[in-house]
Design a protein around this nucleic acid. Structure first.
Length: 726
RNA sequence: GCACCCUUAGCUCAGUUGGUAGAGCAACUCAUUUACACUGAGAAGGUCGCAGGUUCGAGUCCUGCAGGGUGCACCA
């Protein structure tokens, strides 16, 4: 027997090359059908009465390519899916794609801008068609990228947020909310983006700090302060705190004639406790159409409303000579006029405050009053709060549980209508005479039930999160399908901590509302993927790391390990290409471990009587590792499980056990004693035992190389459906 | 203003219910036809933000403070 005679396949003589291996492996998996739990049952891989394990994939926005955050969720969810499948659970990972309403329309509008076009010059139907084609192309492109990242999701069950099944569920939820008195159409202050020409939810606005002028004007006997003189044309009510002794002489309802921007007016005194006596002069005039606080005061005192600024951010005829001017240009001119009239008292030039901006274009939000659909959230939020407190839903990161509860306790009504074409149309009719609307999901009502007048179809679409919020039960075919009965409530919701409010809490609320059950039992939130130095990735900074490029360069397995090890749930992580490179080396290490073991696997066909003596100590040590790794997996500590495997395989298995084994294999067969031969055979068995089981434990993390090595060992079948060592 | 998180080796971060601090990367010194240079060996590096408290014992629990970050909501 020649100890150096290689029994390792030719491929092991070269370094591991992920680029040629990975696509072929994915094809094998996909063709096997094992991503589908029904196939696993049919092929006897999973028992028909096995416990289900379900993850609904957060559907990526079908408007671009995958970013590092996508790679992270694919990695984490695929780790769980592959682990549970190997544990014998009836495992479903349901993929999807999101039309992502306003998000996608914004992306497309930018594209139009580059081409010198504008959506406002287009027929809505044409715009819809173009965005539809764009989205479908992006969608299929992204599906290819998800495959490259190794996602073992069941493509046969893939859903799109505009699929009929989803829209049907969304419409019924809308109807039910209406029937239950939780939906109303209200004229309230909304966040209006003058660029995008749509309302936005509070979550879709950001605040930026700014320093502006703060003006003090003489308003009859009062001095009022404002940062927005351009809104002041229609102000006829002057408000102060009822307890403010400085203004005790003025009484509620008192009429005061005074000179204002465009001539004499009569102001009315209002007393309201919302006034902060310490701010400015303690007196303000109100502009109910363009300010939430003013709106609330006006509602309390039943005061009239008047629009001053139009939907494009230009002044209306109420501004007389300033009419038609952009508010930004008008401000200085208005101040100038007030100054000429001797009404400007002083200017504070260092007024630091925060202004709300559109989270997409950063343009200043113009509060406007516009009739919109709102959901009364308190009752829904209360049920969600109880589910969290009762641990029917386990938010695995304690800090996010606190944040979620805090948000739910302070919830505000949700504006779910958007003035964008790209979305699910709101199934409602509007009556011009009544200035109201009503729900009509079957499109059967053609006159107003209140006044009998003519009605038109509501031109608005739903906030994309209203439909996304119903994703877990809508995708599973609520209420009657077998899938819904089998896989709902889902097991884990794994998604980004940044969409805790946008999505997770809303899924919880709407899931409880529609199905009377939680949509998921565990919530695993990951943080943001930052660059190597911890900076947020952005195109303008040029520090964006494309997971697809990283996968091309180092292999998907290395990328996945780099995204897993050291990534604590809920915390942001830094993605350093050097770290990925380290795991590429690890993949090669594993490759060479295999080569060594196969080269020395010349196990004694000429001595059939020599029984292998298992190396009990090594096996026990490995079994202890298995138990440890399994425990970490059960606790969602993937970062520890992966790290422990890495260290065992490199520092213990390769550096010590394999090195020590060289002494055993060195014996020349011609002079071997029987004992040496059986010792060698025993060691060979042990090494194979450790290798095979290491591959199993490592498979969820590094699925490609483990499957590839597995195929070179004397095994039948695919590693992805082997049983997890227990 | 309300809430949440963080502060541990040069850098990035782990550290499960309290039991005398760990990893990766970087840097340093060696080794060189080895399963693998996508390698190996070795050494170095920390009063765990500060101050109290609980405890036989605190990186870990409690209180306060300082610094950094995040979210939410107002401000005429």
């Amino acid at each position: 027997m020649e100890p150096t005679a290689s029994r390792a396949p030719e491929k092991f003589l070269k370094p591991y090359d992920p680029k040629t291996v990975e696509p072929a492996i994915y094809k094998k998996w996909e063709e096997s059908g094992y991503f589908n739990p029904d196939v696993c049952i049919a092929k006897n891989v999973t028992s028909p009465d096995a416990e289900p394990f379900t993850i609904i994939m957060p559907p990526p926005n079908a408007n671009g390519s995958l970013h590092a955050g996508h790679a992270l969720f694919v990695t984490l969810q695929d780790i769980m899916t592959r682990y549970q499948r190997m544990r014998g659970k009836k495992t479903l990972w349901l993929p999807g794609a999101d039309h992502a309403g306003f998000e996608t329309q914004s992306v497309y509008e930018k594209k139009l801008e580059k081409e010198g076009r504008s959506r406002f010059d287009m027929q809505p139907a044409d715009l819809y068609r173009e965005i539809y084609d764009f989205t479908m192309a992006s969608k299929s492109f992204m599906e290819g990228q998800l495959r490259q990242l190794g996602a073992s999701c069941d493509w046969s069950r893939q859903m799109f947020t505009l699929d009929e099944r989803v829209v049907d569920v969304v419409y019924k939820t809308f109807k039910k909310l209406s029937d239950d008195g939780l939906l109303y159409r209200g004229s309230r202050i909304i966040n209006w983006c003058p660029k995008h020409q749509t309302s936005l939810s509070n979550l879709e606005t950001n605040r930026i700090s700014r320093v502006d002028n703060f003006y003090y004007f003489q308003y009859g006997p009062f001095v009022i302060g404002t940062a927005r003189p351009e809104t002041k044309f229609g102000d006829k009510y002057v408000v102060m705190h009822p307890d403010d002794t400085r203004y005790a002489q003025y009484t509620e309802g008192q009429q005061i004639p005074l000179e204002w921007i465009n001539g004499p007016i009569t102001a009315t005194v209002i007393k309201d406790e919302a006034i902060d006596m310490t701010f400015g002069t303690g007196v303000m005039t109100i502009t109910p159409w363009h300010d939430q606080a003013d709106f609330d005061i006006a509602k309390r005192h039943d005061l009239p409303f008047e629009q001053v600024i139009d939907w494009r951010g230009k002044l209306l005829p109420i501004a007389s000579e300033f009419s038609g001017m952009n508010i930004k240009d008008a401000r200085a001119k208005i101040v100038e006029k007030l100054k000429e009239k001797g009404l400007l008292v002083k200017v504070d030039e260092a007024y630091a405050h925060e202004v709300p901006v559109c989270y997409k274009c950063e343009r200043e939000i113009e509060p406007q009053v516009r009739p919109q659909w709102f959901i009364t959230m308190q009752p829904l939020a209360q049920n969600a709060t109880e589910a969290i407190k009762d641990k029917r839903v386990n938010i695995l990161t304690e800090q996010h549980e606190k944040i979620a509860l805090h948000w739910l306790e302070n919830i505000q009504d949700w504006n779910i209508s958007r003035q964008v074409v790209w979305g699910i149309p709101i199934p409602a009719k509007l009556c011009e005479a009544c200035q109201d609307g009503f729900v009509d999901i079957d499109d059967t009502q053609h006159t107003c039930p209140t006044c009998g007048g003519a009605v038109t179809k509501d031109p608005d679409t739903f906030d994309t999160w209203f439909s996304s919020g119903q994703w877990p039960f809508a995708t599973l075919g609520y209420p009657d399908s077998t899938d819904f009965k089998t896989f709902y409530p889902t097991t884990v919701m794994e998604t980004g901590a940044d969409i805790l409010f946008f999505w997770v809490t809303r899924m919880l609320m709407l899931g409880l509302y529609r199905t009377s059950d939680v949509p998921f039992k565990y919530v695993y939130l990951h943080g943001m993927v930052r660059d190597a130095k911890g900076k947020k990735m952005s195109k303008s900074k040029g520090n964006v790391i494309s997971p697809i490029d990283v996968s091309d360069q180092y292999g998907t397995d290395a990328l996945r390990m780099g995204l897993t090890v050291g990534n604590v749930p809920g915390a942001d992580m830094n993605l350093d290409p050097k770290k990925i490179e380290a795991y590429k080396k690890f993949a090669n290490k594993l490759w060479n471990i295999t080569r060594f073991i196969l080269e020395n696997n010349t196990s004694t066909p000429d001595q059939p009587t020599a029984l292998p003596i298992p190396d009990e100590a090594l096996r026990h040590e490995f079994d202890a590792l298995t138990a440890d790794v399994t425990r970490e997996m059960e606790q969602f500590h993937f970062y520890l499980a992966a790290e422990k495997l890495y260290h065992y395989i490199w520092d213990r298995f390769a550096s010590e056990i394999l090195e020590e084994s060289k002494l055993i294999f060195k014996h020349d067969a011609s002079t071997d004693s029987g004992q040496a031969t059986s010792e060698r055979a025993a060691r060979q068995e042990t090494l194979l035992y450790i290798l095979r089981n290491s591959l199993k434990l490592l498979h969820p993390f590094m699925p490609f190389i483990t499957e590839e090595i597995w195929s070179s060992l004397p095994n039948a079948g695919l590693l992805m459906v082997e049983h997890w060592p227990a």
